[in-house]
C-alpha cells in the first residue's frame, strides 16, 4: 500500500487508538471500524460506480484489503483518508466496464461562453431560491446521473471534495496527484455539472 505524502506530525486521528488496539491483538474490534465506515464507503461507492451491486462489492473488497494492510498503517495520513484510498483501488477493480462515460476529457474553453451577450443577465431561480426549494429527490437523482457521466478522474475529485468533504490537500493525498491538479479537475467537473443542472432546470415544467 503506498503511503503517499506524509501528514504533518501531530495530525489528530480519531481512529488511532482503535487501530493500535486492533494491531496489538484485539482483532475482534475490527468490527467497530466496519460499522463506523460502512455507510460512508457504500455511498462513496455508489457515487463512483452508480450501481448498488458494484458499490456493495467495492465496500466488501475495501474492508478486506483494509484488514490485510492495517498492520502496515503508519499513521502518516488520517485513517479515514487511507481507507478512501483503499476503497478507490477496490472501486477500479470491481467496477464493471459496462458503463462508458460520455465525456472523455473536459476543457475549460468548452464551458466558457463565447458570446457573453447570449448569457442571461439574471441569476436563474434554481440558483436564487433557498436550497430546500431546489433540492428535490428528482434533482438528486439527476445529479447522481450527471456525476456518473464525468470522466472517472474528474469524478473521483468531485466526489471526494464536494460530497465526502475532503480538503484539497487530503484529496491530493488520496488520489496521489498534486493539489493544483485537484483544483483544475474539480473546477472542470463543477462546470460540467453546472451545465447539466442548467439543462435540467431549464427543461423542468
Amino acid at each position: 500500500m503506498p503511503t503517499g505524502t506524509r501528514a504533518k506530525p501531530g495530525v489528530k486521528d480519531e481512529d488511532a487508538e482503535l487501530i493500535r488496539a486492533i494491531n496489538a491483538g484485539e482483532g475482534h474490534r475490527f468490527q467497530q471500524l466496519v460499522e463506523k465506515y460502512q455507510q460512508k464507503l457504500f455511498n462513496f461507492g455508489l457515487r463512483m460506480c452508480g450501481e448498488a451491486r458494484d458499490a456493495e462489492d467495492m465496500v466488501q473488497e475495501a474492508f478486506l484489503n483494509a484488514f490485510r494492510y492495517l498492520e502496515g498503517f503508519r499513521f502518516e495520513t488520517r485513517f479515514r483518508n487511507w481507507l478512501y484510498r483503499v476503497a478507490m483501488s477496490a472501486c477500479l477493480k470491481t467496477k464493471r466496464k459496462a458503463r462508458a462515460t460520455r465525456a472523455e476529457t473536459l476543457s475549460l474553453e468548452d464551458f466558457f461562453p463565447e458570446d457573453p451577450a447570449a448569457m442571461p443577465e439574471d441569476v436563474p431561480s434554481w440558483a436564487r431560491l433557498p436550497l430546500e426549494r431546489v433540492l428535490s429527490a428528482e434533482t438528486s437523482r439527476y445529479l447522481q446521473e450527471a456525476i456518473l457521466d464525468l470522466p472517472a478522474d474528474h469524478r473521483s475529485v468531485l466526489v471526494l471534495r464536494d460530497m465526502e468533504g475532503l480538503s484539497t490537500a487530503e484529496t491530493a493525498q488520496v488520489l496521489e496527484i498534486t493539489p493544483a491538479n485537484v483544483k483544475v479537475r474539480l473546477h472542470r467537473a463543477r462546470l460540467f455539472l453546472r451545465s447539466r443542472l442548467k439543462e435540467h432546470f431549464e427543461h423542468a415544467p
Binding site: M119, P124, A127, L131, T139, L143, L158, G165, R194, L197
Partner: peptide
C-alpha cells in the same frame, strides 16, 4: 454574477445530496 451564483449552487447541491 450569474456564473458565480450558478456554480456556487452546483457545489451546494453536491454537498447536500442525500445518502443512501
Amino acid at each position: 454574477q450569474v456564473c458565480a451564483e450558478t456554480l456556487r449552487r452546483t457545489v451546494e447541491l453536491c454537498r447536500r445530496a442525500g445518502e443512501s
